[in-house]
Design a protein around this nucleic acid. Structure first.
Length: 331
DNA sequence: GGCATAATCCATATTACGTCA
DNA sequence: GCTGACGTAATATGGATTATG
């Protein structure tokens, strides 16, 4: 399915060619490649979501768009057919559409370059990666965007698995077609994505496409990167929160211990006091004005100490005021 | 307007690959 | 060279939201 990408949908280099062309396969003004890229991505997305459920849905989706020439040929790229021999992957529409495209006048051998690139990549890579990851040696590499593609750490020259992707080794490596490929982003790409993430941790479609174009990645890769980045951020935040709660727990435990100790001391003190000084006095008081009954709990000593007639009268007045307030509030 | 369906985006869990000690 | 740990790209899945008929 993702071979649609090899048409240049998500590949910046062909975009430069094709944006200028008046697309015969696309009725929109956006341009063949951008639109096709979106379509490819949609197919990719839908395929990813639906392929395990019902491949027929992909067909129906494809047929409902403005790109009737694409949908049927994309079907072989379902995981079921991942083991399909790359030599069997014939896409007549690819050569027809590109080679015969009137707008594709990009210098001598340009169309052939694309075809060659596609052919190489068809052989060299899984179809799903298609032309999104173009060979640095491609004739059209001069149209490279700001961020060239480096596979498998080739940037630093630490590893060079490129030979694993050439036709000779790959041809005998058909059984590996089902193996998942993993692109290691370059430092520049990661840094750029990080900067973008700082500005906004979610992407709208335009931003996604722009980033993808600028970084020479597929929009889906940008999307996945942001998803994973959000997940990492959340994970780290969770760790920070966990640490904070852990410290809070420790603090509270310490405080609990301290208060338990204090309680024990108070109990010990209480047991050493005379009985009448120990118990708090709970008294029922009736308000003489509204005849409300309220409970007041004070220490016996405090009760006796403040039980002068004047104080009692003042307390009664205050109590009645409280009752009036309560009555107003509860109305 | 209410409903069903599809499409899209996102979060989350998981897998698998690349790197390094 | 082998191996395990780790980071992370990629995948799978389901929920929420929105658009469409």
């Amino acid at each position: 399915m993702e071979l649609a990408l090899s048409l240049g949908g998500d590949t910046p280099k062909p975009i430069l060619f094709l944006e200028k062309s008046s697309s015969s396969s696309c009725s929109k003004d956006v341009g063949f490649c951008m639109d096709l890229g979106k379509f490819s991505e949609e197919l990719d997305e839908v395929g990813r979501r639906k392929r395990s459920r019902n491949h027929q849905e992909i067909i129906s989706k494809g047929s409902s768009t403005d790109h009737p020439s694409l949908q049927l040929d994309l079907l072989p790229f379902s995981p079921v057919s991942r083991n399909t021999s790359s030599s069997q992957l014939c896409f007549p529409w690819l050569s027809q559409n590109l080679a015969s495209e009137p707008g594709l006048t990009h210098g001598p051998g340009g169309g052939k370059a694309i075809l060659d690139m596609n052919r190489r990549q068809l052989v060299a890579e899984e179809a799903e990666e298609g032309a999104a990851l173009s060979s640095p040696n491609s004739e059209i590499s001069s149209f490279q965007m700001n961020f060239p593609i480096y596979r498998n750490g080739n940037l630093n020259g630490k590893r060079d698995h490129s030979e694993n992707y050439n036709s000779s080794s790959r041809a005998s490596d058909e059984e590996d077609a089902s193996a998942r490929k993993k692109l290691r982003l370059t430092k520049e790409q990661s840094a750029f994505l990080e900067e973008s993430f700082k500005e906004h941790n979610t992407l709208n479609p335009k931003q996604k496409l722009a980033l993808a174009k600028q970084l020479n990645l597929r929009p889906r890769q940008v999307e996945v990167w942001f998803q994973n980045r959000r997940a990492r951020t959340k994970l780290k935040q969770t760790e920070v929160d966990c640490e904070y709660l852990k410290k809070c727990c420790e603090t509270l435990t310490e405080e609990n211990k301290r208060m338990q100790k204090e309680l024990q001391e108070l109990r010990a003190l209480k047991s050493s006091q005379p009985f009448h000084m120990q118990l708090p006095a709970t008294t029922l008081t009736m308000c003489p004005s509204c005849e409300r009954v309220s409970t007041t709990t004070t220490s016996f000593a405090a009760t006796t100490a403040t039980a002068t007639p004047a104080a009692t009268a003042s307390n009664t007045a205050a109590l009645h005021n409280n009752h009036k307030l309560i009555s107003l509030m509860t109305k």
